[in-house]
Nucleic acid binder design. Structure first.
Lengths: 161, 161
DNA sequence: ACTGAAAAGGGCACGGC
DNA sequence: GCCGTGCCCTTTTCAGT
């Protein structure tokens, strides 16, 4: 019974759903009343749609976005990682290590010549070195190189609708 | 009067503030009552702290996080861009173009050999090609190469506290 | 899909530590 | 100063129509 493995249910979204999602992914700290006015619906219709969208897993959750600079995390760094070990044991260890480190926001296994791309947020170079030391001491990595963000031109969690 | 340009006020954060922020950046859809219990404070003390943290700009806002897969955006791509034009006019144009495209979540000017790194979310290869066409037609780019995400090991908006 | 009513939660002023 | 309590008003939630 592996037939259903790759089947994915896509909920039908109309223009109003999209408008609701669009607003909420920009700012969800808004009353149902105001949201209703924006999308042209009663507060209640909005409420029921949001409930459905949440239950369908389209809305993953609501979070507060924090200001990295104000928290003293001025440096964003992308770390490129190459490995010579491709066994599942190594992968699990690498995943666990990166998921545990709170400085790391994203870890992606990539196509192409580099194996993994890591996005992290640190205070400064010294702090980056800490992260580097922790990372390389918990898993063996063949090649690690870092690129630092000089300027953040765009940074959003909003997806296209 | 350029002396104050780089001055930044860091608000003193105690352990309770950190606990509040930690909870809210994981899930802000929680009542002040519950939050108070978690951090060991009354609902009102929480409320006042959150208000201060927002006014200080430490909390940038509250947003709904959407499920990219459920929206049919299965492909995450990192686009490396090199340019030969470094005049401010080109930069402004590039910034405007990337900020306008909703498929693009992040644009970073980098140190090192590549100039810009772009993170985007698209449906599939065809959709990526659309994005590529739009991007290259609105600004002149010397070199563009894409790396596709095979597996997302970690992806969070939570910053270390 | 709207109305309305009960329940929950947010916002604010005051008093206490 | 900062915390907590009590009160009121807004918002959410969910019934019925």
């Amino acid at each position: 019974m592996t037939l259903s493995r790759d089947i994915r249910i896509f909920m039908e979204l109309d223009q109003t759903d999209r408008r609701i999602l669009g607003q909420m992914q920009r700012d969800c700290d808004i009353s149902l009343e105001s949201l209703g006015e924006i999308v042209g619906l009663s507060r209640n219709a909005c409420w029921r749609r949001i409930k459905l969208l949440s239950e369908a897993g389209i809305i993953k959750g609501k979070v507060a976005l924090l200001n990295a600079d104000a928290l003293g995390l001025a440096l964003t760094v992308f770390i490129q990682v190459r490995t010579d070990q491709h066994d599942p044991d190594w992968s699990a260890k690498f995943a666990r290590a990166t998921r545990t480190l709170p400085q790391i926001q994203g870890v992606y296994r990539m196509s192409g010549d580099l194996d993994y791309l890591i996005r992290a947020q640190v205070a400064d170079m010294k702090d980056y070195d800490h992260l580097y030391q922790k990372l390389t001491s918990s898993v063996s990595l063949a090649d690690v190189s870092a690129s630092f963000v000089m300027e953040e031109i765009k940074d959003t969690t909003a997806l296209p609708l």
